[in-house]
Nucleic acid binder design. Structure first.
Lengths: 204, 204
DNA sequence: TTATGGTTTAACCATTTGGTTAACAAAGAT
DNA sequence: ATCTTTGTTAACCAAATGGTTAAACCATAA
């Protein structure tokens, strides 16, 4: 029950509230007043600390992206074998997402709205690169560990299979006629089913 | 160079303009004035024909969904073998999407914004069901044609692999450091790479 | 105690936005 | 020809929204 230390705290309060609102409603759907309400402060404070809606949004966006980037790095720049990385990634990612359910859709959506955001992030964040992954795939194919496959296509496959269900959750729920509970169970089963599926396809 | 037959034409004009604007900017980002401008008519006409932004949006949304539904039906309710369906679907879908680049993202995004839309569509459209597909997978597994796999997971895999690249295009372009042309080439190669990938994984 | 500086608020403002209205044009119907 | 219905427009309106301001608040250093 500690006393709030005024300023430092409200700035975080704002960012946290903004995160909630922006990730649920997107840049266009979010309202400054709603963010203020969620933070329990006056709307003018948003501008005092972040100047404009645009800048507040960018703070939230960078923040979100810097959460996702390390996940991608795990599969791109880790030193273990492709097989191990696939297994680890598919197991970890689903758990990771459960803690940040709005994250992938938020990033994808806002990147679609304004593709130029990429440039802004590329400077801020330690940015994932495909180079190492491509070389590793090539090498394991040559060694006969993997069937012939293009590194870029494999990468797209892995992230598609992992991320898509969480981006298209309502679509999947609708088509499969399942509710929230059913979806969670399905994703839990998926932790194993998915890595099996991928490994089956690429391992010689 | 035929004369415009007044009413019938403008209603379509509006729907077409609304489609463009809504699919690019989403419900929240779209402006009625922009739709009117794109249609080259007075803003009041939008309300004359569609009453409200919400109703105009719903017209566009149903319309879009009824374009996507037959695609899903091809893989769910066609009579050919799973292998054939996978091959056909992955070949056709990429071509299909090139003609409607904003479609999948639009549907997914707006379904996220308001999951209740599903109910509204379910009545209008011939709605895809998993039943037949599930039975078929089960049967082919029992016959030893396919390795053991859950029908629902396989379905999720297929649509993830096909749809995700077109939902997350800016993300993929950014990570792979490719431009529009490079992306198109990659998707062209993908027509074969992807069906190989899936078949490799499931065929005994 | 009293300046001083950053922090917070209520009230306000200009603009945007979805929607309406009243008048007008066009084209059948009588 | 004229009455009636339907289509179309410019002007308008009220509400919402991002942003500003001037005054109040409050901790702390002098």
């Amino acid at each position: 029950m500690a006393k709030k230390n005024k300023n430092q705290d409200t700035e975080g309060q704002i960012l946290s509230a903004a995160k909630n609102v922006f990730q649920k409603k997107g840049m266009d759907g979010a309202r400054m007043q709603e963010i203020a309400d969620e933070a329990g402060i006056n709307k003018a404070m948003l501008h005092y600390y972040y100047r404009s809606k645009q800048l507040l949004f960018e703070a939230v966006f960078s923040n979100a992206f810097s959460l996702l980037a390390p996940q991608l790095n795990k599969i791109l720049n880790d030193d273990s074998s492709i097989e191990e990385k696939v297994k680890n990634f598919t197991h970890n990612y689903i758990s990771f997402i459960s803690k940040h359910p709005y994250l992938p859709n938020f990033i994808i959506q806002e990147l679609n709205r304004n593709p130029k955001f990429f440039e802004k992030i590329q400077q801020n964040t330690a940015f994932p690169t495909l180079e190492k992954f491509n070389n590793q795939v090539k090498s394991e194919v040559e060694q006969g560990i993997l069937k012939p496959i293009d590194g870029e296509q494999l990468f797209i496959n892995i992230i598609s299979l992992n991320i898509f269900p969480f981006v298209a959750t309502p679509l999947i729920k609708g088509l499969l006629k399942i509710d929230d509970k059913g979806f969670k169970q399905l994703m839990e089963k998926r932790k194993n089913a998915l890595s099996e599926f991928i490994i089956n396809s690429i391992k010689k």
